[in-house]
Design a protein around this nucleic acid. Structure first.
Lengths: 207, 207
DNA sequence: TCCTTTTTGTACCAATCGATACATAATTCA
DNA sequence: TGAATTATGTATCGATTGGTACAAAAAGGA
């Protein structure tokens, strides 16, 4: 593409990963440009030339997170033979992923920028969109379970998807509060233990 | 007490409530001193004389939240005849409380300051302590259910308490993401629908 | 009345925030 | 080689941050 001009002396990918790590650890607001230039090993003009702005860099970092450290959580969702197994596996993977050594605890998409008034709109919306995308994927997986017969047609897939993401998002807060891995795994087991009764009892449009 | 000196011209209680409302809406970091002095109707020296610092004001505001807008959620916890009813009521009240008109959505204790590296330690720890206090109250209510026989003695009260708070904390994020009230209520119903199967299936120390 | 105590408003502090101007260095293309 | 292009390091921008110094004002106590 652009081979003209002075070549950059840093790896864009490495710099982006460093940015991801500190954004994940400190969050968008608590991470300053001084932090970023330090861990990325470059000066502000290079950062802005390569990434545009702090907010754009953050969104690229979130995408990298979704492709790397955050990806494993969702790996078995579509491969699981039943919706029940898919959900239980998702929550167990979340429990493990949120409590790994040498990594910030919890999910970057949930924690790194609170959905508060006055926050950077692009950043907050970007994270919200990513959260809702995963919830949509979950809802589709549940609908597939209905189509394949391992879930009764009476279940409300939207409600259950919201229920499961609620548990998963709450896990991130527990992880940041210091909950040990076995507690997060126990949360996943609570959901699994109640599953059969839930899908048998619940009905759509209970209003 | 101290009747000497020039009397203050503002109501400390009213000012604190105004501070609570904007902290709840914008979060600790996104709320500036300029915001606070504007909505509280006083100048910085008066704010510091009355409340000490931004962080101390915030913690007082959180306490006020716990005594007022956030209190209703927990009202029926100890009065409910069974643990199951107590939990289902707690989550239904949370769903309603988190989606009220003319109030910020979600729980102030969960949302207003993310537990991130580099944040104000007193603020983050203060919120964490309040979260864990509620989780402890929940765990005690479950233990009471065991003692009174409406829960089998095999259940892991710590795990279930973490499971329920996970759902509740996740609800706050859903509320901020714009989920309508009926979706949050459906989450509460999912938990209730699975309850009997969960307590019948789960066992302590499954490791 | 005078002294002490406390609050008030103005004006301001040093520090940090995200973001840039500018000159220089390093490369490709002609 | 010379022109065009891009990246680099230094030094800094205006704005905003949380927090105060200071003197005037308003009360009680002697």
């Amino acid at each position: 593409m652009s081979s003209r001009g002075r070549p950059r002396t840093f790896s864009r990918d490495d710099a982006l990963r460093s940015a991801m790590e500190i954004f994940w650890d400190k969050g968008f607001d608590n991470t300053s440009l001084a932090d970023l230039t330090r861990v990325m090993g470059l000066n502000p003009p290079s950062l802005y030339a390569a990434f545009g702005s702090k907010a754009k860099l953050f969104l690229e970092a979130v995408d990298l997170y979704g492709r790397t450290d955050g990806a494993g959580i969702w790996e078995f969702l579509d491969e699981a033979p039943t919706a029940k197994e898919a959900i239980h596996d998702l929550l167990k993977r979340s429990a493990k992923n949120f409590t790994q050594r040498d990594e910030p605890r919890g999910c970057m998409v949930v924690l790194s920028a609170p959905q508060m008034e006055g926050g950077d709109a692009a950043v907050c919306d970007g994270l919200k969109v990513r959260r809702l995308e995963k919830q949509g994927a979950l809802e589709r997986r549940l609908a597939r379970g209905v189509a394949e017969g391992d879930l009764p047609p009476t279940v409300d897939c939207e409600a259950i998807a919201a229920y499961v993401t609620s548990i998963q998002h709450g896990m991130s807060i527990h992880a940041r509060d210091g909950a040990p891995r076995h507690v997060l795994l126990a949360i996943a087991d609570c959901c699994a233990a109640g599953w059969d009764g839930m899908v048998a009892t619940m009905r759509k449009a209970q209003g």
